[in-house]
Design a protein around this nucleic acid. Structure first.
Lengths: 182, 182
DNA sequence: GTTCCCATGTAACCCGTTACATGATTTT
DNA sequence: AAAATCATGTAACGGGTTACATGGGAAC
């Protein structure tokens, strides 16, 4: 049998199914604006997965010549592709999650830092979180009156990130008062 | 000069410095119990990094023969190793963070699922979060009266995870009431 | 006329994983 | 006698990255 495909394959298949007729280039843009928040993917890899999906017969690409623009490939999911996607969605078995934070890695070694340095580290972390919070707030607000189910889910996914970021900002305050002034 | 080392190298160097005289095996155990939460590392990779650190001259390993146990290597950071670690800790420049959630990947494609299925997905996610919350709560509680700075930071790091998980559990409730009954 | 957008790739690299090997000692 | 613990690795694989190549049309 086929040795299990990486989830990234489905991460590409999903949007192809959702946005039929998109080029790889358009899919990259769509990814950046939506699911890259919880499933980052580089342009190179997306094209690779697109080719794999074509080989699997799960996606077909038709060349579209246009008057005053480069020729693009219009990708569409096939019936077997949609079947595969449905099957994958049904495997709720294990939802893996990977998380790596170089901030926490440094924070964990705080005994090697001066108190001043530690507070600077926390300050940097807060700044980056605030930035993300503002981004996510804008996304959530922008999709407030979402009409399509896709946009609704996009908003709720962004909300997941927003709630996470807010909790971490609170954690910083908690830590700062636990550590006292630097 | 040396093309930038992966942060995982420092993730190993830190504990070696903190726990002088540890074997690779002991470091694996230490990792699992503490920083694996925000910086997972496999046994194989940890040993690889240990060798790299030895080649860099940042760590020295001395063989320790023991009466009735296998010979182990006792790893210790060198002055240049500690210098490198301090230098890395000072580079607050970019604290990268990677996050990938296969739950959100599926959730995002919820328009392809039945309402029943979507609620099952959320239920599974809740269960896994509750499990992690309980683990983290136990860790935080266990280190409540932490005496060493290392244990204190371990507790605060676990608290970061705990606050995150709690926020996500709340997010689930938020989503469930937004979606209505399945 | 240079720079940006559209569009699709190739090449090189390596981090990190799983599976497996080995062998002694201690516990069940 | 079998299983778990201590201890250190090798081998194979692949997912994912950055950097680069290419080439036409549009915009400034």
């Amino acid at each position: 049998m086929v040795s299990e495909l990486p989830e990234t394959t489905y991460a590409v298949l999903g949007p192809v199914d959702k946005l039929p007729g998109s080029s790889g280039y358009e899919l990259v843009a769509a990814a950046d604006g939506s699911f890259a928040h919880f499933w980052p993917i580089s342009q190179t890899l997306l094209y690779k997965e697109l080719n794999r999906l074509a080989e699997l017969g799960w996606v077909v690409a038709s060349r579209v010549e246009r008057a005053r623009s480069p020729t693009k490939s219009a990708n569409r999911s096939t019936p077997s592709g949609r079947e595969a996607l449905a099957g994958w969605l049904a495997t709720t078995s294990q939802h893996t999650e990977s998380f790596r934070s170089s901030f926490l890695l440094r924070f964990f070694l705080a005994h090697l830092m001066s108190a001043r340095h530690l507070h600077a580290l926390l300050g940097d972390y807060r700044r980056s979180l605030v930035e993300r919070r503002d981004d996510l707030t804008a996304i959530v607000a922008g999709l407030e009156k979402a009409s399509t189910p896709m946009a609704r889910m996009g908003r709720l996914s962004a909300l997941h990130g927003l709630r996470t970021v807010e909790a971490r900002l609170q954690w910083i305050s908690e830590v700062e008062s636990a550590l006292g002034p630097g």
